[in-house]
Amino acid sequence: MTASDILLRVENLSKHFPTKTGSVKAVDGVTFDIKRGTIVGLVGESGSGKTTAGRCTLRLIEPSGGRLIFDGKDLLSLSEREMRSYRRRMQIVFQDPYSSLNPRMRVEDIIGEAIDTHNLARGAAKRERIAELLTRVGLDPEHGRRYPHEFSGGQRQRIGIARALAVEPEFIVADEPVSALDVSVQAQVLNLIQDLQQSYGLTMLFIAHDLSVVEYLCDEVVVMYLGRVMERGPSRSVYAMPRHPYTQALLSAAPVPNPKAHRQRVILQGDIPSPMNPPSGCVFRTRCPYAIDACAEVVPPLDPIAPDHHVACIRRDDPVVLSQGKRL
């Protein structure tokens, strides 16, 4: 694989929030690549840092350290002014289609604002572009005159997607774009996302907590816990044989709509620790069923175990951990 196959390289990314009593390491040394035209899923529970990491990749939150190589250029070396031309190439779709659209703006103005910001079209050409975008996301172009409250949740999410597409981006961060929607409507929006991804050749970072959606939609998956990457790799390999005890626990905990699926469930004890005071060594060790004394001593490196598949666990080759991965 050559470097040009990679649209975004996230390298040792970190975001530390200072507080009165110390700093919160929301994202701590996160590294992964996103190849052009692929969808990478970023999964983890609340407090894992997945949303912060996603926003950092767009510099919507300014990272504390690391590098973001987008199309060969380190975004963190750019001034705010130089960043503008890159902003057009990267967009975000938010989780909540209720709070992410200005209720006092007409839909055509919400989409038009993005076009104006980057001076992409004016007058009739702009109106045509808005109508085309609305049609493309499955809405009636006539509805551009309406306000967000006149639409259902699924339709609003389509508006959010149209707004992101308005500037013809190459890269989209989708932050839980279907989790606020009814189940029967989620599949409509997921179909739309992949249609658009294919027809525009989009590259995406898909942030989610729903593991079955990620398995279906994403080419690769990055599993985060307490600000760090525990495991990453092609979705097929990670789901077929999760190698990190946290990935194993996460996959075994996700309920599946089949009462006969009696899986070997790993029930984790306790809660995710506070990021103010993370455990030493491996951050997962306090909840890990396989933790040993050595886990407290060193931060396990994210080692390759197969092409593109990396695991941060010192016991990853231990038979007890391996066999749990096989049982899932």
């Binding site: 609340s46 996460l250 309920p255 469930r265 029930i267």
Partner: peptide
């Protein structure tokens, strides 16, 4: 709740 906590509560 997160899935690992959900599994605890259902259990």
């Amino acid at each position: 709740l997160d899935v690992t906590i959900q599994a605890q509560i259902l259990d």
